[in-house]
Design a protein around this nucleic acid. Structure first.
Lengths: 338, 338
DNA sequence: CTGAAAGCGCTTACAG
DNA sequence: CTGAAAGCGCTTACAG
């Protein structure tokens, strides 16, 4: 299967009766090779199941054809927030799109307070660029990367004043779609159980929520609006508080599917039926959304597409230097919970 | 920060007034260097934030210091089974342990029916070895890897007749602990809602269940035993069937946390209280286990330890050729659901 | 303990 | 279109 006699392009060159240079060109699809010669070289390579040596190629070309997905090390202890489930679902899409572009995906677990990590991966020639998630998008990380001219792409809205690649969900639209759906189904007291107040994405979703209500002639009740983490417990706690304070509400608009699931659990424990008494809407549409009981009505972020764009646009940037900032549309998926 | 003037060991050699050979030895901690010389070289390297070129190192040493975590590509379309959530939680632990050993983790998404993938990673010198999960542990993959003498380690019981590294959970003990706990809390009609019948791990858990019941003087009711997938829907379907057929049962022993969560949902929808009417036990102790409502009583697999062993033992095998097969103890975590 | 030199397996100007 | 040669940045016998 793997042929011990054919390990390098020199072996192929010998068999094909040409020089190493020619074999190298043939295998890399250079136009500087006679078609017939190219075919002969490729045939021999295929026949012997030849695989080009990656280190030699990287050393010579000064690029590794590897990208790092940056995850924060503290996520790997005990606590997995929504971002991590999100990360997993995204990882596959990224990895798939990357291999289509002949790139590999390295998993980089970095200390969130360390600023040296980019050097460890970039200066070693270990990777050609980074993919950052919203959770890793601390300002100082971005700034470090920009300063060292590291190629990278970010999932989330780009920081104003900096130029770099990004893929963002349409959070304003997401907030609008969810709110419109609730209004349409007769809900009037909609609690906004948000993620961190300082996250731009969260602010946009709130903006969508607020604008739809305002346009429909309703006022926002500040009692119904809260911010916290994207996690289930954070959501559960706030829904419980609403119940305890006897605030009336007939819908909960959360900022992640995990938050929605936890909200539903708390409501049910307190004798509220979902969606009969209270509608609950999630965000992301992770696979758990359809497996929950009741299944989640949620705003889909289209992770397969997001992953593909993250991979493709970073590779393009590395190869061409063109900065892209794209926004992926939000889509409402209606199931049982609202 | 990263110093444009000091990019290679040649630069350091110049500054230190020694040869490249000496710098190389100093940086790699070779004993063949005078202590004082070593310190001088390292100081210069640190001062200029020098990072050794990875490709050159790999090419010269003929090893990449990278391991591949093998995941199946079809997991990345739509469907994420328990194995994948499991995978994510494990990934962090593996990645952390690997960086402690100065290894990197590459994510390999492979077509489950392809047998050529090991070549693509190994013959290219891309990685030094593979970590396979239970789900990727198809017999023919193992055989291919053994035949090509590829270094690898497997999460799960090793195939008889083959010699390779593995880390396994103590599934017999896991099955026993869960069953004993249910018996102790007065349960007598315990449904075993299992994973795939042909998985060795599942068989062992059943064996634990069966032996505890037998030793306590109870008979197994075949109506209470079923096999399927590790997924939530598979579990839900079977619990629903029990309810429909009016089989009496006061406990459900599942083979994954997702299965337990789905089982609980179905039971609650049908008016059964958990754990008052029916106790439900999960397996794995993923982070969702504690966030579910009610929180899951489950058999912990200790993923941080498993990840560490997977990483460490494969690295050791690569460096020493010593085959290790270790079993990680199972531990019962008692929460609300049983 | 140290250095000069060869070698790892590619790619790519350069010359033809 | 093709080949000889230099070079990518390390490591490691080998000789001292």
């Amino acid at each position: 299967m793997n042929d011990k006699s054919v390990q390098t392009i020199a072996d192929i060159a010998r068999l094909a009766g040409v020089s190493k240079s020619t074999v190298s060109r043939a295998l890399s699809g250079s136009p500087l090779v006679n078609e017939e010669t190219r075919e002969r070289c490729c045939a021999i390579a295929a026949e012997h199941n030849f695989q080009i040596n990656n280190a030699a190629r990287s050393l010579s070309m000064k690029q590794s054809h590897t990208l790092a997905l940056v995850a924060h090390a503290y996520h790997h202890k005990e606590c997995y927030s929504v971002t991590d489930l999100f990360l997993l679902e995204l990882m596959g899409a990224i990895s798939g799109a990357l291999s289509a572009n002949r790139y590999d995906l390295l998993l980089a677990s970095v200390d969130p307070y360390d600023t040296q990590w980019p050097h460890q991966y970039l200066d070693t020639g270990r990777v050609d660029g980074f993919i950052l998630m919203t959770s890793t998008r601390k300002q100082f990380h971005i700034k470090t990367l920009v300063e060292m001219k590291a190629p990278f792409i970010v999932w989330g809205t780009p920081l104003p004043g900096f130029s770099y690649c990004s893929v963002t969900g349409d959070n304003l639209m997401g907030g609008r779609l969810a709110t419109e759906h609730l209004l349409r189904s007769g809900r009037r007291r909609i609690a906004f159980v948000g993620g961190p107040a300082n996250e731009f994405e969260v602010q946009k979703r709130y903006e969508g929520y607020e604008s739809v209500l305002r346009e429909a002639g309703y006022k926002i009740d500040p009692e119904l609006v809260s911010y916290g983490e994207f996690s289930g417990p954070s959501s559960a706690e706030r829904v419980a508080k609403l119940l305890k304070k006897s605030v009336t509400f007939d819908a909960v608009l959360t900022n992640s599917d995990l938050m929605a699931i936890s909200a539903i659990n708390v409501l049910q424990e307190n004798g509220r039926r979902v969606p009969e008494d209270v509608s609950v809407i999630g965000y992301d549409d992770l696979s758990i959304a359809q497996h929950n009981s009741p299944s989640l009505t949620t705003v889909r972020q289209n992770l397969p597409l997001v992953g593909k764009l993250l991979a493709k646009n970073l590779v393009d940037y590395i190869q061409t230097g063109i900065v892209t900032n794209v926004t992926v549309p939000a889509e409402l998926v209606i199931r049982k919970s609202a």
